[in-house]
Amino acid sequence: MALNAQQIAWLGIYNDLPMTVTTFFLRRIARGKIPYVVNTKSIDYEEVKKHAIKAKILKRGEKFPTSRLNGSVIKGVTPEVIKDSIPFTPYDALNRLPGQEVYINGKKVDHKKYEEDKRIASLKVSVPVVQEEIAAGVFLEGKYVSPDTGNEVTYTAYPSESVAVTDIKEWGIWTTTKINEFITENKVRVDEILVGKDVFYKILTDYNKSSDKVITATPKRVQTQDGDYELHLDVFGFNYVMIPDTTDTQGNAIDTANWFQLRNDAAVIPAFAGVVNVVNGQSTLEAADLIIRETPADPETGEAKTLAESAYCPIVVNPNIVKTYKVTGL
């Protein structure tokens, strides 16, 4: 059973709506990759490994990272479904009969479609917020805690080491050295340099203090394709991107203030398990990153719901192509 025409239309509306929440980590995990999507409740890591090898993310013979659930090694993951619903009743119709128009911003719209679009717009906020929290945990720490069950999924840790700020005599030379080491060790390029806010401003301050700098550097506020904003610093021929303040799925702050992180985009892939679809009373698991559907009206109250569901679970397929330096003494 596939999505019906109405569900496809709802997804079209959802995707056309502007993103109004921060998606710093979501878009980085998705960047340049085809998502891994299955129509089963669990994602089998052996199948993900085959996918990663075919996509040249993982070289043949390289070990797929270990994953643990609450301390025990697991061979797959069953992500909890991110779900939200917006209830509605026949009274949510702006007091219009079916087919009668409503004028919004001077444009004529059908009242039923207007109400549907409002519900879908609300879902476009609530679902990405949870997805971004999951993405942040996996992207930064290689782990996330299910907001529903409290289960913690942990992947093999990214390589990390501490470095004293006094050992960094000049940021341009030090960055060049670390990038060269990264490329030599991993045989892949550095796609991005991400830095915590303390490191970001330390680089900026040190650059502007240098006596040979005629023009002072200033951070740039860069707008992304989905309308979000990021803070970038272009100095020494490198682009340093500030890691924003963020929280995990439990609301705990992830402290990245003293991080200097080199990343290749292929380290983490977006993955989605199947989500339940119900059409004409028949339920199936669909291979989709998101499903929107409506429940039948309750016979007593007349209340129905518009639901959005996604079994999002990004997977660390190659932790070695991320390297974090934690700069002490800032």
Rank of each mutant, 00 (worst) to 15 (best):
F25Q: 01
H111P: 14
E192A: 06
L233E: 10
N320W: 07
E300T: 08
I43C: 06
A266N: 10
E133S: 03
K197R: 11
I183H: 13
I74F: 03
Y144L: 08
D44V: 06
I254H: 11
L231T: 12
G137S: 05
D117L: 04
I134L: 03
T328H: 11
D248L: 15
Q225D: 09
L194D: 04
N208H: 11
K326H: 06
G274V: 13
T22P: 03
Y144H: 13
D206H: 13
R263Y: 14
E80C: 03
I134P: 01
E101K: 15
I34C: 00
L204N: 08
V241D: 00
A135P: 04
F200R: 09
Q223R: 15
Y14E: 05
G61I: 06
A267H: 12
D44N: 12
T166W: 06
K213D: 00
W259V: 15
N15H: 02
G251H: 10
E185W: 12
Q7C: 11
A136Q: 03
P98I: 08
N186W: 15
V37M: 02
V129N: 02
D110Y: 08
A311T: 05
E132A: 02
K187I: 12
I13R: 01
Y91N: 12
K326I: 05
E309A: 10
D44T: 07
G150D: 14
N264K: 08
V145P: 10
L330S: 02
T177M: 15
V214S: 09
Q250L: 13
R263L: 08
V268M: 12
T66F: 12
Y201C: 08
V279A: 14
T224P: 10
R221E: 13
A164D: 10
R221N: 13
A157F: 06
P18L: 05
T256A: 07
T306Q: 00
I291S: 01
E133P: 07
G71S: 05
